[in-house]
Each structure stands twice: as structure tokens, then as C-alpha cells.
């Protein structure tokens, strides 16, 4: 009995050894820095399913929420760097989040950035019946004395709203207490706020003509409204999109890092996988690995510092 059970355990543990040089010695915990349900969580879980299907590794997803991804970051940082714990979050957590939090408990350099995964479709949205065509119209209205309320769901976006106003010499009533882009979208729809940042769910409303992307918060044109005004046109040289990223604790052995990084970027980019289909539909594919991923996060860190310096009073 004893030998039988031990042999079974050993067989299960060694089954994936044939696939590559590195294979996990047990199930991999995937710590997701988002609330269960919702797009980001779905994406992470689908990636886990795809890796399981393609590579035969066991992934156990769990949601580790709080402090804008900070709790997940601390948890991953404190895990053993053996490839059995990885995390999914947004680059914001490792850039703006590190600078803005009182005591984040982690630093950008505490992680290996395995692969970026997807990007948002951030835009400044208003109802089309307001008559504005772009942000310049809104700024003109504000200059003419109209009070404009501006919804934002993260401190970074609130800073962005403030900076847009500052550069253009107007003051918005910034409403920054919303949780998630869907809440801002609802507020815009219910006319609780005049304009607001929305990261993608505005798509169907914009296609139907009820809503309008007044400006593009991304560094690439928005798919649903490619001609939306760029922030550069209103004197803002920052971008406000979010990038999803897979991380591991720093000090991960090279073979494990390469194998994980390769597995994640492969399933996300491969046609026909569940995660690929989901990301293409709800977000945009945005894959960078290795040094490229690290320098992307470091670039965002520098941008965040510049934004904070530019908005400080």
C-alpha cells in the first residue's frame, strides 16, 4: 500500500518533466491581484487554464486583493523564488503605486516581470447628447464658466484629470471615489458626472452612438474610435492606459524564469487559446517579456514620478 501510494505521487510529480528543461515540482499558485469575477480575473484564470492544457502544469488560481494590487505584490515578494508562486497584476502597482503609497512594502526591483499580457482601451467618455466632440470642446465649455465634473477610478487617473485641467487653465470637479471603470461608466450614463475615464466597457455604448470617446488615454489609437483626440493635442504628454503583467519573486532561477515567461507569452499570443480569444475581444494583446518587460515597467515608474512632480502643489 505504502509503496503504491508513493509511486503514484512520484509519477504525478514527474509527468511533465519530458516537456522542457524546467518543470514545476508541484502545483503553481497563481495569485490574482483582482476581485473574483470581472475582466482581469477572468483573463488570469483563462491563462491558467491554457497553460494547464498546453503544458500539463497544474495552476491553482486564487484572488489576493487589496491596496490596489499591493497585497498581491507583497505576498508574491515574500514567497519562495522557486517558480511555484506567480502573480498577475497591473504595471500601475509597480510604478505609480510604489511612489504614491505611504509604505508600499515592496519595490519595483523586488520582482521578475515574466510577461506583459494585455492593454486597456482607456478613454475620456461623455454622453454624445452633451454636444462635445472632443476634450478641447469640454475645456472650452469649462473656460466659458460651465462646471464640469470628471469621474476617475484610481488616484493616478485623478492626478491625470487634475493635470489636464492644470495644463489647460481650467478646474474640473474631480470625482475620484469610484471603484472600477464600470462604476464611472454608470455615473456618466446616469449624468452623475459629465465626463469620466473608462478603460474599455464604453465600447458598446460608443458603437451604438450613445457615448463618445472625447480623448484617447492610450499610446495607440483606440479600436472603437481610432480618430479620438490624443492627449498630446491638449498639451498632455502622459498616457493613462493600464497594462496587465505576470510577475514572480526576484531571484527566480533563469531556467524557471524563461520557462514560465515562455509558457505565459505563448498561450496569450497563440490563436485559438481561450485567453487569446478573451483578450482580443475585451482588451488588446500586449506581450513583452524579459528585459523588454522590465524596462517597460521602469519607464512607467519614471512617467509616474514625472506626473507626480508635475501635479504637486
Amino acid at each position: 500500500m505504502k509503496t503504491l501510494l508513493s509511486a503514484a505521487a512520484a509519477a504525478i510529480l514527474s509527468v511533465s518533466a519530458a516537456y522542457a528543461d524546467w518543470a514545476p515540482s508541484g502545483p503553481i499558485k497563481l495569485q490574482i491581484g483582482f476581485k473574483a469575477g470581472g475582466g482581469a480575473d477572468t483573463m488570469a484564470r483563462l491563462i491558467a487554464e491554457d497553460i494547464q492544457a498546453e503544458y500539463g502544469w497544474t495552476l491553482l488560481p486564487e484572488n489576493v486583493t487589496g491596496a490596489g494590487g499591493g497585497v498581491m505584490a507583497r505576498s508574491v515578494k515574500d514567497s519562495a523564488a522557486d517558480g511555484l508562486t506567480i502573480g498577475v497584476g497591473i504595471t500601475d502597482t509597480f510604478a505609480y503605486g510604489v511612489l504614491a503609497a505611504r509604505d508600499p512594502g515592496y519595490a519595483t526591483s523586488d520582482f521578475e516581470y515574466l510577461s506583459t499580457l494585455a492593454g486597456t482601451q482607456m478613454g475620456i467618455v461623455a454622453k454624445s447628447d452633451r454636444g462635445w466632440k472632443n476634450m478641447s470642446d469640454v475645456i472650452a465649455a469649462a473656460k466659458a464658466g460651465e462646471e464640469i465634473s470628471f469621474g476617475a477610478m484610481t488616484p493616478r487617473l485623478a492626478d491625470g484629470s487634475y493635470y489636464i485641467g492644470k495644463v489647460n487653465g481650467v478646474e474640473f470637479n474631480i470625482v475620484s471615489s469610484y471603484k472600477g471603470g464600470k462604476a464611472v461608466l454608470n455615473a456618466v450614463n446616469a449624468s452623475d458626472v459629465d465626463i469620466g475615464w473608462v478603460a474599455g466597457p464604453q465600447k458598446s455604448g460608443v458603437s451604438a452612438g450613445d457615448l463618445l470617446n472625447l480623448a484617447n488615454g492610450e499610446d495607440k489609437p483606440l479600436r472603437v474610435s481610432p480618430d479620438a483626440q490624443t492627449l498630446a493635442e491638449i498639451g498632455v504628454d502622459f498616457f493613462f492606459g493600464a497594462t496587465f503583467v505576470a510577475i514572480a519573486p526576484a531571484g527566480l532561477p533563469d531556467d524557471a524564469r524563461l520557462a514560465l515567461s515562455d509558457a505565459i507569452s505563448t498561450v496569450v499570443q497563440k490563436d485559438g487559446t481561450k485567453s487569446n480569444a478573451f483578450i482580443s475581444k475585451a482588451l488588446t494583446i500586449k506581450v513583452m517579456t524579459g528585459d523588454e518587460a522590465r524596462s517597460y515597467v521602469e519607464g512607467e515608474l519614471a512617467d509616474a514620478e514625472a506626473l507626480l512632480n508635475a501635479t504637486v502643489e
Binding site: S6, A9, A10, L13, L84
Partner: peptide
Amino acid sequence: LWFSGEISYRQLLDT
């Protein structure tokens, strides 16, 4: 006890 420390529970928690 069973594996006299050779395999950890962490590796078996899905088995």
C-alpha cells in the same frame, strides 16, 4: 511521516 521528509505536502496538495 509517510515519505520521511522527502516529499513536502506543498507538492502533494493537489493529489
